[in-house]
């Protein structure tokens, strides 16, 4: 039977059409979003230039990059450690921790912000804030970014550890390896793709974090102003072109990081010669 003319072929074509329509429509929407910023910014080039030249915006750019790098490093460390623990060990309460780790992903960002503020300002932990000056300061930005980033790192790393690591880790132990040797020499290298993905997602979330940062760190120009807060402040002052310019700046930086991540995560062994016999 000629499959290209049969009823199944029609069904295949319809199925493909649905997939293609979804891909085309969504890609168009994403390009339109970027295009809208370019268009608005293009209408007021002088205003855009004036906005980007502002010292506060340049400070916000460096603060955004700095805090997002710090919080990504912390998220990666904490998220990977907890994911490894929960994936490898069964103990009382591990399921509760597993559930808890998803909470920051599902909570509204504003709730995270207000919860952090209450924790550090309205509970007996206020002494901690008085000593270390966290709320409404740069550490507040890092804490707020880290909360969500860690949850994403945890989920990504745990899926990888669950998938393959348990078996080969056990075999490595039979060869005399300590748990640290197994983790550093087997688990982590075997999870390279997941680590890169975790870094990308944690950094992207941190770089664009707005709600918790605004509530917990405030929106003090030149002090706790990160780029998403800058967009908010420019919009509040009616400078739509300036807000669009900052958005484009964030899109550009995110695109560069995305390309770097894609380049880094390419497997160096895939292009090697040699096939199974």
């Amino acid at each position: 039977m000629n499959r290209s003319n049969g009823p199944s072929a029609n069904s295949d074509r319809r199925f493909d059409a649905v997939l293609i329509v979804a891909a085309v429509v969504f890609s168009t929407v994403l390009l339109a979003l970027i295009g809208a910023n370019v268009w608005v910014a293009g209408l007021d080039r002088i205003g855009v230039w004036e906005t980007l030249k502002q010292t506060e915006i340049q400070q916000a750019l460096w603060l955004s990059i700095g805090t997002s790098v710090y919080s990504t490093v912390i998220s990666l460390w904490v998220g990977t450690a907890i994911a490894h623990l929960i994936s490898q060990r069964q103990f009382w309460g591990c399921r509760f921790i597993d559930l808890l780790m998803d909470l920051p992903v599902f909570l509204p960002p504003l709730v995270i912000g207000i919860s952090l503020l209450i924790l550090f300002r309205q509970t007996p932990l206020v002494w901690f804030d008085e000593w270390f000056h966290i709320a409404f300061a740069v550490p507040a930005i890092i804490v707020a970014q880290t909360i969500v980033g860690t949850a994403f790192v945890y989920r990504t790393m745990k899926a990888t550890f669950d998938q393959h690591a348990g078996r080969i880790e056990g075999i490595a132990e039979t060869l005399g390896a300590s748990r640290w040797q197994v983790f550093s020499r087997i688990t982590l290298p075997a999870s390279k793709q997941a680590i890169v993905a975790s870094i990308a997602i944690a950094w992207a979330r941190a770089f664009g974090e707005f709600g918790p940062v605004l509530v917990f760190a405030g929106s003090f120009r030149g002090r706790t102003e990160v780029l998403p807060v800058s967009i908010y402040l420019e919009l509040n002052s009616g400078n739509v072109a300036g807000a669009a310019a900052i958005s484009l700046l964030m899109i550009l930086i995110a695109a560069i990081v995305l390309l770097l991540v894609r380049f880094t995560s390419r497997d160096r062994f895939t292009s090697r010669a040699g096939s199974p016999r």
């Binding site: 039979t174 005399g176 390896a177 300590s178």
Partner: peptide, 9 residues
């Protein structure tokens, strides 16, 4: 512990 059994597996 597994690592201390010294068994080639």
């Amino acid at each position: 512990p597994v690592a201390q059994r010294g068994i080639g597996y």
